[in-house]
Design a protein around this nucleic acid. Structure first.
Length: 896
RNA sequence: GCGAGAGUGGCGGAAUUGGCAGACGCGCUGGACUUAGGAUCCAGUGGGGAAACCCGUGCGGGUUCGAGUCCCGCCUCUCGCACCA
């Protein structure tokens, strides 16, 4: 009868915890606080996957353990519930996304509760709740109301933006436009990634190799009005502040690479006052160039380049003398101006072709470089040489200035291009002693088979010959600045964040577009007042399955939603919605004060609980989610809404769980493990325990049902260690009594407490479990099992297998929950052995073992080793050159 | 191509950071108890060898009394990024 039956005891304790609100977090922490956060899931229709409980179990263990240590623990859970699948389902079936979403949330909630996680369920939020996204919209208004002050390196209210006098003179409209140009949220008309199959525009990051990341549908380019967030303004801080975070180095590196900070210089190349055809053969006139240089020397380097120059960005200003041609991106605004009549047809054809190409074609498949000459030249400002300007798609319009100086001798891409089109290659960096040797006076251009991209010493560089690369870079930046033709510059790979989506199932923007009498947008934007929030989605909505234009579904919303009258003016609502990232950018704040209807979070509460002390989730969010959330947090910090400028202090990425066949789990591979089935067959405690026993949390590891059987066997043994299975009713095993533990039992107990505690500190859950297995293996063989020792084990086990631990805790006569029982302490003296066995080596090879007192000194150990018969035999007739004795560890004789 | 991480029994994985390689679990072998076993218990289990011993942490070198651990050079796998000038 009283066999271990998780199907009975697990629901029983889950009910107990819920009824007693055992895991309710206090409004403010009492004493030490710990905020432990899981990446909240997207509640898909497929339900929970065994990958979810991996991180959730780890955090649950940390939380339960810390409660027992007397720490105030914040441990919430919620739902990242906006998302495309519910909307696609609506298009197919007509079911409102809210209905689908709520059903899926219900299923996820049931599954998580089934696993016995100690969340404070009173704090549950979903990003789709009106009460939640009201504040997502509110944060958007903060972003809209903020500009980034480069001087103070922080976001400030738009009302504090200094307005230049010439703008002010042009009137209120100009001032408003000027402000709009500086807001952190701004609109652009931009080519975007339109995915007809999904009926939406995707961010660059959501397009992988020319197809959508989700579903792998084709993606084409289309121009559309879009909202952008100026995350690039924060690039510098987002990068630098990584230093302060306790994150895996690999993840920090990913973010650094994504931000992609590079330092170099901007340089203006003279192309002639009138642009195309200014001189013979498209060459600028020498006289004009000289005049330009003189005027620049006086005026300095202008903030924005004029039409007479082509501005480039380079990280290798030291190679300026090796620039033999220039390249501009096909989308560069100067393409037309720079194209001579002879080249017009070729250039036009090339640019059209480039525009049609997807990113895939332009990168992966474009092994061979392509491009055409514009017919024009520019003048290299360091030596006055005329060099041809080409158009090629290996230069990207979105990075730097969209134009480069090409130095084929020292850049791989330029080298390939120059080889293909027979452009001159002039070496200007001598590798010196470092690499392949070449002598300055004896340069043979054809002798090298590839570009030399490393640093060296300048050659063929006029007055700079002999300068090492690093110093040369600095020197020439100074010289260019003095002449007004260049300056030091910083660039980022990071682009501004495309923040609008053509979805129905997302947060509506709290913005109105002013309409004129004819019903056309005037271009003026009116944000909603915070008091007008929340702006809900229209309740009545027809979901058009044939949504094949790049147009937001809300364009088809009922007129009473879409049009608004205000102060006698008509407005149309913004019909784009926010991306799924929006809700997940700040959910960790709302958990702290989920029902507040006056603020997104009470500042007192926010300052008491933030930052998140431990954040656990998958590495797939290493870049985007974590970067976006950090960006929002910094803006909220700059505007005084939160107390710190980094939200997540420590980050841990759990490794992916593979199928039993060592492949990624997927429906198509048929290797998906369903947690419901595992719980039904083995119980939640076994699932939890197995997920932790599989291996290190961060490691990628395959599932094994046999492994689950193994940990279930351990829980069965713990049960039998304490329960009398042969009795009719639940009864304590007769071996469990109130006796004093023996020295050996005490040693095992305290060793286990020590090891489990240390393993928990290091989040090494797999080894902690093996320690408890050793404990059980030991005590199952003991005729007499001290009750106190059994109780201690249950406390150690409780964070891992809480249901079983609670059940046996009450069997042993304790009342209530053990959730707040003090964590066991260990006694070092109980662990100490009287004697220890140490290995004896001869020349590093193990030859015997000796038993010595635990505190034995070197002399005692050496003589004991020499006295060991086998060792004595082997040492006979040999000379001991040296005896290495490490007290308490080993003895090693070096002999001749 | 660039960057990061990892290679230990038949399998998942341990190894107080330079000191007895293989803890713990699975699997396997033999045994006990059983009408039965996907229950339980006992013993064994890196490879070779009767044994003494020998060989063993991806490969090749090195440092050291001593290397899974440190150094140098390779190989393989996984995950990112991918013309960012």
């Amino acid at each position: 009868m009283p066999r271990y039956n998780p199907a009975v005891i697990e629901p029983k304790w889950q009910k107990y915890w819920a009824e007693h609100r055992t895991f309710a977090c206090p409004r403010l922490p009492k004493g030490r606080k710990l905020y432990v956060l899981d990446m909240f899931p997207y509640p898909s229709g497929d339900g929970l996957h065994v990958g979810h409980p991996e991180g959730y179990t780890a955090t649950d263990i940390v939380c339960r353990w810390n409660r027992m240590k007397g720490v105030s623990v914040m441990h919430p859970m919620g739902w990242d519930a906006f998302g495309l699948p519910a909307e696609l389902h609506a298009k197919k079936t007509g079911t409102h996304p809210r209905e689908t979403t709520e059903r899926n949330i219900g299923n996820f909630r049931r599954q998580l509760k089934m696993l016995g996680f100690s969340y404070d369920w009173d704090r549950e939020v979903a990003t789709t709740d009106l009460d939640y996204f009201r504040w997502t919209q509110w944060i958007f208004l903060v972003l809209y109301d903020t500009w980034f002050d480069p001087a103070e390196r922080r976001g400030r209210p738009i009302s504090e933006l200094p307005i230049p006098r010439e703008i002010e003179k042009q009137g209120a409209g100009a001032v408003e436009r000027y402000r709009d140009e500086h807001r952190l949220a701004y609109q652009i008309e931009a080519p975007v990634n339109w995915c007809p199959a999904l009926g939406t525009v995707l961010a660059n990051e959501e397009v992988v190799g020319g197809v959508s990341e989700r579903g792998e549908h084709p993606v084409v380019r289309a121009k559309l009005r879009q909202w952008m967030l100026r995350i690039t303004a924060y690039a510098d801080r987002l990068e630098k502040d990584l230093d302060r975070l306790d994150w895996p180095e690999g993840i920090k590196l990913l973010q650094r690479n994504w931000i992609g900070r590079s330092t170099g210089a901007e340089v203006d190349f003279y192309i002639g006052g009138g642009g195309r055809g200014a001189g013979d053969e498209g060459k600028p006139l020498a006289g004009e160039y000289e005049a330009w240089k003189k005027s620049r020397a006086k005026s300095g380097f202008p903030r924005k380049p004029g039409n007479e120059v082509l501005r480039i960005y380079t990280t290798r200003a030291d190679t300026l003398f090796g620039a033999t041609y220039m390249v501009i991106a096909p989308e560069h605004p100067f393409v037309e101006r720079l194209t001579t009549p002879d080249q017009q047809q070729a250039v036009r054809d090339y640019c059209e072709q480039a525009a049609r190409k997807s990113d895939l074609d332009r990168t992966d498949l474009a092994k061979e470089k392509t491009g055409v000459w514009t017919g024009s030249h520019a003048i290299n400002p360091v030596n006055g040489e005329s060099i041809p300007i080409w158009v090629a798609d290996y230069v990207l319009i979105s990075y730097g200035t969209g134009a480069i100086m090409a130095v084929p001798a020292h850049d791989t891409r330029d080298w390939e291009f120059a080889k293909r089109f027979n452009l001159p290659i002039i070496p200007v960096v001598d590798p010196g002693d470092s690499g392949q040797r070449s002598v300055a006076g004896d340069q043979n251009k054809e002798s090298r088979s590839e570009a030399f991209i490393a640093e060296g010493v300048a050659i063929n560089s006029g007055p700079y010959n002999g300068w090492p690369t690093a110093e040369f870079k600095q020197k020439i930046a100074e010289d260019l600045t003095a002449q007004g033709i260049g300056r030091a510059a910083v660039n980022y790979k990071l682009r501004d964040w495309l923040f609008s989506r053509q979805h129905f199932w997302g947060e509506p923007f709290p913005l109105l577009h002013e309409l004129d009498d004819a019903g056309r947008p005037t271009g003026r934007i009116a944000p909603l007042e915070p008091s007008e929030l929340p702006l809900n989605l229209p309740k009545e909505m027809v979901f058009d399955a044939t949504h094949d234009r790049p147009e937001p579904p809300l364009e088809m919303a009922p007129d009473d939603w879409l049009y608004v009258a205000r102060d006698g003016k008509r407005y149309k609502r913004e019909t784009n919605t926010m991306p799924q990232w929006a809700g997940s950018c700040w959910y960790y704040l709302r958990f702290l004060d989920p029902k507040n209807d006056r603020a997104m979070v009470d500042p007192e509460i926010e300052r008491a609980w933030m930052p998140v002390d431990l954040y656990v989730g998958g590495a797939e969010h290493a870049v985007l989610h974590l970067l976006y959330a950090r960006f929002w947090h910094k803006v909220l910090y700059d505007r005084g809404h939160v107390g710190g400028d980094e939200p997540f202090i420590k980050l841990v990425n759990q490794g992916m769980i593979l199928g039993e066949n060592n492949e990624k789990m997927s429906k198509s591979r048929g290797n998906v493990v369903n947690p419901d089935e595992v719980v039904a067959e083995y119980g939640a405690d076994s699932l939890r325990l197995y997920e932790m026993f599989m291996g290190p949390l961060e490691a990628v590891k395959p599932w094994s049902m046999d492994g689950v059987t193994g940990v279930r066997g351990f829980l069965d043994r713990v049960w039998r260690m304490i329960v009398d299975e042969r009795a009719e009713e639940m009864a304590i095993n007769p071996a469990v009594t109130d006796v004093e533990p023996t020295a050996a039992q005490n040693r095992m107990l305290h060793k286990t407490i020590k090891a489990v505690t240390r393993d928990l500190e290091q989040m090494s859950f797999n080894t902690a479990i093996s320690r408890m297995m050793e404990f059980a293996n030991f005590f199952l063989k003991e005729e007499s099992r001290p009750r106190a020792a059994m109780e201690k084990l249950l406390l150690l086990l409780s964070p891992f297998a809480p249901h079983l631990a609670e059940e046996l805790w009450s069997l042993l006569g304790r009342t209530g929950s053990l959730a707040y029982e003090p964590w066991p302490k260990y006694d070092e003296t109980a662990i100490k052995e009287e004697t220890i066995e140490v290995p004896v080596q001869i020349c590093g090879k193990l030859r015997g073992r000796i038993e010595v007192p635990a505190g034995a000194d070197k002399e005692t150990m050496e003589s004991a080793a020499r006295a060991e018969p086998k060792i004595a035999e082997l040492l006979a007739g040999k000379t001991v050159v040296k005896a290495i004795v490490v007290p308490g560890r080993m003895v090693n004789f070096v002999v001749k």
